[in-house]
C-alpha cells in the first residue's frame, strides 16, 4: 500500500492487519491511502475527497447515537477537522482507513453525547408516539435474498446479510450497543433482560459477525 509515512516498528501485525482488511475492498483502501498520504502534506482537496467518500456513512452512524441532525453534522465536521489537524492518528498498521474512521466517528459521537449530558435517548426504547423501539429503524431493509447479499462484493451488503443472520435478540442487543451508543446496563434495562444475558448476546452476536465477515474461528485458527 502506498503509504510513505514513517510507521512504528511493526509488531508482527502484518497478518492481523491483512485479516482485518479483507472486509474492505482493496481498491477503496488504495484510494483512501493515497488521499491520506496527500492529507499529511496539507492537501485540502484530498481531505475534501475523503469527506465526500466517508461523511455520509459517518453521518448515518452519528444520527441514531446523537438523535439530532445538527449535532450529528457538527460531530462529523469536527471529526474531519481533527483528521486534518492530526492525520498521524491513523496508523495503517491497524487496518483499513474506512474501518478506523468509523470507530473514531462512533467514539466521538458517544463522547459528544455523554458531554451533552442530555440523555436525549431516555425514551430510546419508545418512539415518539409511544411505539416500541424498532432496531429496523436504524438499518436498511435487507434484500429478499440474504444469500445473495452475503456473496456480494459490497461490504455493506455483506454486513447487512451477517446482521440478518443473527437471532432477533442478539441483533437487538448488538444494535442498541453499536448504533444506539447505550451501555450494557442501559440495554439490559431497556430490554428488560439480565445484564449477563445482554453481555452474552452482544458477545455472541459479534462472534457470529466476525465468523462470517473475517473468517474468525473461536479457537483462533483462521480458516480461509
Amino acid at each position: 500500500m502506498a503509504d510513505g509515512r514513517s510507521q512504528p516498528a511493526p509488531q508482527q501485525s502484518e497478518p492481523a492487519a491483512r485479516t482485518g482488511r479483507r472486509l474492505f475492498a482493496p481498491e477503496d483502501q488504495a484510494i483512501d491511502a493515497a488521499l491520506m498520504e496527500r492529507v499529511t502534506t496539507g492537501d485540502k482537496a484530498a481531505l475534501g475527497e475523503l469527506y465526500d467518500r466517508h461523511a455520509p456513512t459517518c453521518l448515518a452512524l452519528a444520527m441514531p447515537i446523537l438523535r439530532d441532525r445538527r449535532l450529528a453534522e457538527e460531530c462529523v465536521q469536527d471529526l474531519f477537522l481533527n483528521l486534518w489537524q492530526r492525520p498521524h492518528t491513523y496508523d495503517s498498521q491497524r487496518g483499513a482507513f474506512g474501518g478506523w474512521l468509523m470507530r473514531v466517528a462512533r467514539n466521538r459521537a458517544i463522547d459528544l453525547l455523554r458531554r451533552q449530558r442530555e440523555r436525549r435517548f431516555a425514551d430510546f426504547a419508545v418512539g415518539a408516539e409511544g411505539t416500541p423501539f424498532d432496531p429496523e429503524l436504524f438499518l436498511v431493509d435487507p434484500a429478499p435474498d440474504p444469500a445473495e447479499l452475503a456473496a456480494s462484493s459490497d461490504t455493506g451488503d455483506r454486513v447487512r446479510a451477517a446482521l440478518v443472520s443473527l437471532s432477533g435478540e442478539q441483533r437487538e442487543a448488538l444494535e442498541l450497543a453499536y448504533f444506539g451508543g447505550l451501555s450494557q446496563s442501559e440495554i439490559a434495562e431497556r430490554l428488560n433482560r439480565p445484564l449477563g444475558t445482554v453481555k452474552t448476546q452482544i458477545r455472541t452476536g459479534m462472534q457470529r459477525l466476525a465468523r462470517q465477515l473475517t473468517g474468525y474461528r473461536p479457537d483462533g485458527t483462521d480458516t480461509e
Binding site: 482485518g20 474506512g98 468509523m102 466517528a105 436504524f138 438499518l139 461490504t155 454486513v159 459479534m206 466476525a210
Partner: peptide, 14 residues
C-alpha cells in the same frame, strides 16, 4: 484486529 474490522464495517450497513 478482526473484531475491530467488524466494528468498523457495521456502519456500512446503514
Amino acid at each position: 484486529v478482526q473484531f475491530e474490522a467488524v466494528a468498523g464495517a457495521m456502519p456500512l450497513a446503514l
